[in-house]
Nucleic acid binder design. Structure first.
Length: 405
RNA sequence: GCGUCGAUGGUAGAGUGGUCAAUUACAUCAGACUGUAAAUCUGACGCCUUCGGGCUACGCAGGUUCAAAUCCUGCUCGGCGCACCA
């Protein structure tokens, strides 16, 4: 709330500066172009697209949403575009073809999306964000129209895309339909007749295709803002591959913990991309780090801030307390899962409740001394795990707790 | 269509008859340590096990062999080259 008031009190030129600099990787055709557009007083329409393939948005999406919010705060029209067309036909990109989503699933996802996104942009009140679906126009296109659209781009232009260039270098296949994806995304810009688009740096090519199409079909200069990706100086991404992907539906504890496990190099990018801190505040933090302050404490501030932006102050504070208790003081987490034994052996309970994937896995954990009765501090033996456990709290590894009663 | 090369575990990528549940790297998990669930070091990393071993896996289906990820045949899919370009 404080943050919102703060941003409401900001001067217009401050907001424009924030919009043009914070978390921004690139602005096309140029920063000056967009700046003069913003100063012209014209009401602009800007969109960002989201694929409804999963029921949740993650922290990467939030970067785009924050940027949209900057536009919204300046009184511009923002569009939250759902890429339901791709979801509906299924993305054949991977061999494990995604199943197309049904109408119903899309509706459910949409509700969840709106709810999650509403933490960052406003869907009600004055100048509310508009939701659009690209199936509305892409789903209706005739083949002749698709061909006509395709005639605006050459194969060579497509091949300039880094991903395609790499595939060719590696002798990997490129399917024709993959050429269509940038076109489809680009066509969204045309159909919505937007002034600009916001997206991750990895979406640059697709967004520029939209710029080309809009120029050719409507003689309009679309601007494109790419946001920085969340990665450290070595290029280590915070993403699915490293298992640190923060989803909007993660528990406060999980979000807090995942951020604490980020590598130190992500602290500053984290503040820039995932919080409402101003650039000068971030500067201050950067100085503190250089002075040798314990990065852990700064990271805790980041973890709190991000958790707060998703779950609010109360839950964020609790997550922080829980982290301190569990990992710094090695105490048991307050909110642990309680399971009734029901005559099952320890082994069976862990397996059935999903704490371990297989019995072999549990045996390995026991052999490594990772399973203990947290109250007596005794390490579990192989034999004990095959018996009905005593009522107690058990710890598996460093962060999994189970209370058996 | 012809020729040729290829398909391996979560990913990348070794292995070309037995010593292969499969080198290595990344990811993951655990232990130690600490500044933290960071970094670093160590270990584990298909499933089941009475810890002897058993079972299932190297695109799919068969075959050869005492023995196959490895050899043969067919199929599916892909790369490259050639042809086709109406």
């Amino acid at each position: 709330m404080e943050k919102m008031l703060q941003s409401a009190n900001m001067e217009k030129h401050e907001r424009i500066e924030l919009l043009l600099s914070k978390g921004v990787a690139d602005i096309l055709p140029s920063k000056g172009f967009l700046e003069s557009l913003l100063l012209s007083g014209k009401k602009l329409s800007i969109y960002a697209g989201f694929d409804p393939t999963a029921p949740t948005l993650h922290i990467g999406h939030a970067i785009q949403l924050r940027k949209l919010r900057h536009f919204q705060d300046l009184g511009h029209k923002i569009i939250f575009l759902i890429g339901d067309f791709t979801a509906r036909i299924g993305d054949p990109d991977k061999l494990s073809a995604r199943k197309p989503l049904t109408e119903k699933e899309i509706k459910t996802n949409l509700k969840l999306y709106k709810k999650q996104a509403s933490k960052f942009i406003r869907f009600s009140g004055t100048n509310a964000a508009v939701v659009k679906f690209n199936n509305k126009w892409l789903g209706k296109m005739k083949f002749a129209e698709v061909l006509n659209l395709a005639s605006h781009m050459t194969v060579d232009q497509m091949l300039k895309r880094d991903m395609f260039a790499r595939r060719i270098a590696e002798d990997k296949p490129i399917y024709i339909h993959e050429f269509m994806y940038p076109l489809m995304q680009g066509y969204d810009s045309v159909m919505m007749d937007v002034d600009g688009e916001v997206g991750g740096n990895d979406q640059l090519f697709n967004m520029l295709t939209g710029r080309t199409l809009l120029k050719q079909l409507k003689n309009k200069d679309k601007f494109v803002i790419t946001t920085k990706l969340l990665e450290d100086s070595t290029g280590a991404k915070m993403g699915k591959t490293t298992g640190n992907m923060i989803s909007m539906i993660d528990t406060p504890q999980d979000i807090y913990g995942k951020i604490m496990s980020w590598t130190d190099g992500l602290i500053i990018p984290g503040f820039e991309l995932c919080t409402d801190y101003t650039m000068s505040q971030i500067e201050t933090i950067s100085d503190e780090l250089k002075k040798g302050i314990n990065p852990r404490d700064i990271k805790m501030r980041l973890a709190y801030e991000v958790t707060r932006s998703i779950h609010g102050e109360v839950l964020a504070s609790r997550a922080e307390a829980s982290f301190i208790a569990t990992f710094q003081q090695k105490e048991v987490d307050q909110d642990i899962q309680t399971i009734t034994a029901n005559g099952r052996t320890f082994e069976t309970i862990l397996l059935e409740e999903g704490f371990v994937g297989s019995k072999s896995e549990l045996r390995r954990l026991i052999a490594a001394g990772a399973v203990m009765n947290f109250e007596t501090k005794e390490k579990m033996t192989d034999l004990q795990s095959r018996q009905i456990p005593h009522f107690s709290t058990y710890k598996i590894g460093k962060s999994r707790f189970i209370k058996i009663s």
